[in-house]
Simulated assay, not measured.
Amino acid sequence: MTHRSVDTHAVARAASLLAAALDEGRPVAPVRDLLGEHDVAAAYAVQQELTRRRLADGAVVVGRKIGLTSPAVQRQLGVDQPDFGVLFADMDVSGLPEVPSGRLLQPKAEAEIAFVLKEDLADGDLTPARIRAAVDHAVAALEIVDSRIADWDISLTDTVADNASSGLFVLAEHRLTLDEFEPRETSMRLYADDVLVSEGSGAACLGDPLNALAWLARTAREFGEPLRAGQVVLSGALGPMVPTPPGTRIRAEISSLGEVTAAFSEKAASSEESNA
């Protein structure tokens, strides 16, 4: 994707600050003063630099996440458009007995529909029919968002630079194809310690989670990193996100897809753990 030139010094400085926040287990001040509150190109340049560093350290990309698709979440964060981030293999904690709270700084949970692709979305027209055909199956998912920015004091550039405030994710085992359900018709209820704390629907995600997938397919291709077969796409929150301090038990019910659960370990983040 062709962008106007960005301030490479500011991008490098912002990337170093966010990397240090993760390494040291301490959130940092917003990076928007370095990048400009509305300079999305610079923010994605920071995200790409942090991704490059992770790949150099041996990380493996397994998909993408779409953020800020729900009007409720946009209101929570004071932004008005979607964004995307990169999912790495070590972010998938579906197989763990507990979500490792020690890896997180200030986590919140969102219930989402995750799509797993069976075709690349790299070339040609990305029509609605082609987007649907590229989906192998869908599962209920929990995205555990996190922010390296202190107190979640974020603008759009802050969250984009910070890998769209990605943290960890949990995928349910029950799979459905798009012949078996319509994502836009789903309803969602999210419980924290058996108390209903968030509700929403498929229509809350850009009108249809498949619209979000289409937006991501186009945008990722423009950035030169198109979606590929086998990748997981977290399509965006179906309702407001909720805090998940250590010890929290989360359960989401998404109609047709069923339940997805997560228990957060009692141990909170520390600098020593983050450096381990």
Rank of each mutant, 00 (worst) to 15 (best):
S155M: 10
V170W: 14
I250W: 14
A134N: 05
M241A: 15
I250Q: 13
A114H: 02
R221E: 00
D90V: 03
G236L: 09
E119D: 15
L117H: 02
T2A: 09
T186C: 15
A140W: 11
L142H: 07
Q74F: 14
A20F: 01
F88L: 12
C205R: 07
S147F: 14
L105W: 04
R54P: 09
A263C: 12
P243T: 08
G67T: 04
R4K: 13
L213I: 07
E24F: 00
R26V: 06
T159R: 03
A268N: 13
S94K: 13
A276K: 15
V93L: 06
S165T: 09
K108R: 15
G124Q: 02
T186E: 13
A252Q: 08
F181N: 10
P30Y: 01
D136Y: 11
E222G: 07
S147W: 04
A129G: 11
H38V: 10
D23L: 01
D123P: 00
R175L: 01
V232W: 06
P209I: 09
R26H: 05
A212T: 05
A43L: 09
P183R: 09
Y191T: 01
A268L: 06
V79A: 11
P100R: 03
D194W: 11
G236N: 08
A12Y: 08
L87M: 08
T159I: 14
E272S: 10
L206I: 11
E110I: 06
T69L: 12
P27Q: 03
L156N: 00
G247M: 12
N211V: 04
S235E: 01
R130M: 07
I66P: 13
D151L: 11
L234F: 06
F115Q: 04
L234Y: 03
R13V: 14
I144K: 10
P183F: 12
S101G: 15
V170T: 08
D136A: 14
G36V: 02
I66H: 11
A140Y: 10
P71S: 08
T219Q: 02
Q48C: 04
L213A: 04
R64H: 11
A21C: 01
L190A: 12
L96V: 06
D90T: 13
A122L: 03
P226T: 00
R75T: 15
E180A: 15
E112M: 00
A59W: 10
D136T: 04
T186L: 10
R184C: 08
A89F: 09
F181V: 11
A237I: 01
Q81D: 13
G67A: 11
S271R: 15
R175V: 00
H38I: 03
S274M: 15
P82C: 03
T219L: 00
L238T: 14
E253C: 12
E112C: 05
M91P: 04
A45F: 01
A192G: 12
R53I: 08
R53N: 07
I250T: 13
L35Y: 01
V145A: 12
L68N: 09
E49F: 06
